[in-house]
Design a protein around this nucleic acid. Structure first.
Lengths: 358, 358
DNA sequence: GGGCTGGATGACAGCGCTGTCACCATCGGC
DNA sequence: GCCGATGGTGACAGCGCTGTCATCCAGCCC
């Protein structure tokens, strides 16, 4: 059957198409009886408004773009990260009858500014959700700002500029994780920092320091190692920490990949996790549940963040609000198997402890 | 600056808008000189055709929908799978000036048929790319067929119906993997089957049998175990195989999760991989590169498959071809660290071999 | 009751593009 | 030199909707 148009509905309901339009768009100034009549006709004909016609006739694009760094060209450990954001953004779009355009792009490309510009010119989204780490790259942010398209940044790390953003409490939740470790009896809690370019990840270190302080613990420089977000760097840092004369009993890594590396380092040294060493990570990548033991970690509310960002953009079209300010959606701690209370024999090492091959 | 329209271009080039339209759509019957003039004007004004107007004016929707099973509600090990398909589909869409709509949905929902129907009515895509495992679920396939929207199925497992499909040579490449293992000197090659509902995964078993035969090896029932695609089932199956009196020297699992389980089982039994046991998987999930040792596996050309599917759909709009037949894009074997030649001391077990705690 | 206000509704003109068809040159064949 | 065929081009009517503005009818004030 040919698709029903607004004319068909108007005819069936005995009103003008304009009135149907009002009902569809939930505009005021329609009598209840009329509205009911129209709604009945809509149902009977299973009418769906034509997106293209709507967009053409009104300045509103009903299109949100989600721009993120494309990891598919190399490794894809962060695929879950992207999927979760998509899920959130899609959810907001679906309920508002908007469409979502996904735009993976590679920030290492020199021409990313031009590329984004072309995409924006082409798709003409009503708003843009910009994911981390693109959200804290001046080049990228500026290219988008230049187009004048409303934008919400996800986890921008710092509140630069007036752009609106949605973030999570990286620092606060990291402090909470540290306090949680302290509450298990740990006194020597180490931290492995992430790659310095990642602002949001850097905030986690600050949270760690806060947490130590709040728990009345000293932050010793010996218990802070540098990593670069990779599994290998986590393993190396973990090994260095565990081979100290007075090693920590808990290690908190700024991301899950490094935490997984720490678990491996511990295994190679014959240490039981969590019996002799507690390990915590951050991000809740899928690996966190597959690891053995499963990894206690911080779960970022990525989906909610992206959903909120899309909502802000959608609502912005109505009330022309200036679109600024930062929203915060709290992260949660996922307690799994890799953390536990300090045991009596914490200092005991397994037989394979010392001098293992790298 | 306000966005340039086709009128602006026509005026600048001194032709009618229809001629500009012809140039933009690469239609014939435009003199070269005219075409050049128009193209120059387009560049000067950096004109981009308005999608909505185009769609409204022509039956062609310039929209492809990618429908896949939404894993985000539970665990997300397959996020990479989705991302790779998206990448391929996006690539086809971008180069043809099409838009991509992603539609994750949960096949466990009772109302999935109605849901898909509503989505299709709403978005009106010109074609649908249906990913596995949805592509071999009759309920889902029928719901889409009922809408009359052109569809290409990805890895449908079997060639049911007349729908067009793009698949990979699961069976052939599995045979190749088996031959590869045999070529390393392995004579006792075990296989761990996947979940029976997954057609494409079932084909891998057939390939394994083919491969044994092609290598002149006997397929012994003792060397085939059942799994359910999960890590845990792989570990259990691996353990059973390795505790046989005459255990295999190579284990080929129908997917990577199970292969990872086998590696863990081997580690617990003190077996060195690949020194004493070769392990191969299938899918090339991101975990495959993070495992230690990294996993030899079969990489499905997901991105190419999705790209091809989208291309077929896009091209179908031009030449009204009946849209049927199955295309095949070959998978590749990724040789990594987990497989190696049979060593002299293959039968030697590590000290922790027997009777370890489960 | 006259004049007003404001809510409810409809007429109408596009939004920017494509499909159809008409038009005007050419051009080759007789 | 006349004809039909063909290539190149443009006029024009929508596609299905929304924004604007006009219209109409109640209800209200004095």
């Amino acid at each position: 059957m040919p698709r029903a148009t607004i004319n068909d509905v108007a005819e069936l309901a005995g009103v003008s198409i304009k009135t149907v339009s009002r009902v569809v768009n939930k505009e005021p100034n329609v009598r209840d009886a009329t509205r009911a009549k129209v709604e009945k006709a809509i149902t009977r004909l299973s009418y769906h408004p034509n997106m293209s016609a709507r967009n053409l006739a009104s300045p509103r694009a009903r299109l949100i773009a989600l721009i993120y760094h494309d990891t598919s060209s190399y490794d894809i450990p962060s695929a879950g990260y992207v999927i979760r954001m998509q899920t959130g953004a899609l959810s907001a779009c679906r309920s508002a009858d908007y469409r979502l355009v996904i735009y993976p792009c590679d920030f290492r490309t020199g021409s990313i500014g031009a590329e984004l510009n072309a995409m924006i010119e082409h798709a003409r989204p009503q708003g843009i959700v910009l994911a981390a780490p693109l959200s804290n790259m001046p080049r990228v942010v500026q290219a988008i700002v230049a187009t004048g398209t409303p934008m919400v940044r996800l986890s921008p790390g710092t509140q630069g500029g007036k752009q609106c953003s949605v973030a999570t409490n990286d620092r606060g939740i990291s402090a909470a994780m540290t306090r949680y470790l302290a509450s298990l009896g740990h006194r020597k809690i180490a931290f492995i920092k992430g790659h310095p370019s990642h602002k949001a990840v850097a905030n986690r270190y600050l949270g760690y320091v806060d947490g130590l302080q709040q728990s009345g613990l000293d932050s010793s420089e010996h218990f802070v190692e540098n990593g670069d977000n990779s599994f290998g760097s986590g393993e190396a840092a973990g090994r260095r920490l565990l081979l100290l004369k007075a090693p920590p009993t808990a290690i908190f890594a700024a991301n899950d990949d490094m935490a997984a590396g720490v678990i491996r380092a511990a295994a190679l040294l014959g240490l039981d996790v969590p019996g002799q060493l507690s390990v915590a990570g951050c991000d809740d990548i899928s690996l966190a549940r597959q690891l053995c033991p499963t990894l206690t970690t911080i779960r970022q509310p990525l989906s909610s963040m992206a959903e909120r960002a899309a909502q802000i953009l959608i609502r912005n079209a109505d009330d022309e609000s200036p679109l600024q300010g930062a929203e915060m959606i709290p992260a949660t701690i996922e307690i799994r198997e890799s953390t536990g209370p300090v045991s009596a024999n914490t200092r005991l090492r397994g037989s394979r402890a010392q001098g293992l091959p790298e």
